[in-house]
């Protein structure tokens, strides 16, 4: 998969076409981090994620798919229990 970070200055796409070959997650500046002790598995973060980046794992928690997460922070904001914090960095 191509990387947005490898692009020339100004993020100019040299080949025409869709953004499909590009990784959606690598322009993220903040990464969600889940505190499994506070999480009640209510799935509210899954409900409000605009990029459908949260996937259900076998133990019942919703894990962030880092290929698709753009780091908007809606999950952290909407979590009732404060279980998701946004960490700076990729």
């Amino acid at each position: 998969m191509n990387n947005w970070a490898n692009n020339k200055v100004g993020c100019i796409l040299l080949q025409e076409g869709r953004a499909e070959p590009f990784n959606k997650g690598d322009r993220r500046t903040h990464t969600p981090l889940r505190d499994k002790e506070k999480c009640t598995k209510c799935a509210l973060c899954y409900l409000y994620c605009p990029d459908a980046a949260l996937r259900l794992t076998e133990d019942g928690f919703f894990e962030v798919d880092k290929d698709y997460c753009k780091g908007c922070g809606i999950c952290s904001r909407e979590c009732w229990f404060g279980a998701i914090s946004m960490e700076e960095g990729h």
Binding site: R18, A19, E20, K24, R28, K41, C42, A43, L44, Y46, L47, Y48, C49, P50, D51, A52, A53, L56, Y68, K70, G71, C72, G73, I74
Partner: peptide
Amino acid sequence: VPKLLRRQECFLPESSRSCKGCAEALAVR
């Protein structure tokens, strides 16, 4: 109960070019 919503996604995040925090993408989903 959010968990009972159908989990199958028809919305393809692969082809989504939305900005971060786009509520329109959420609506489409």
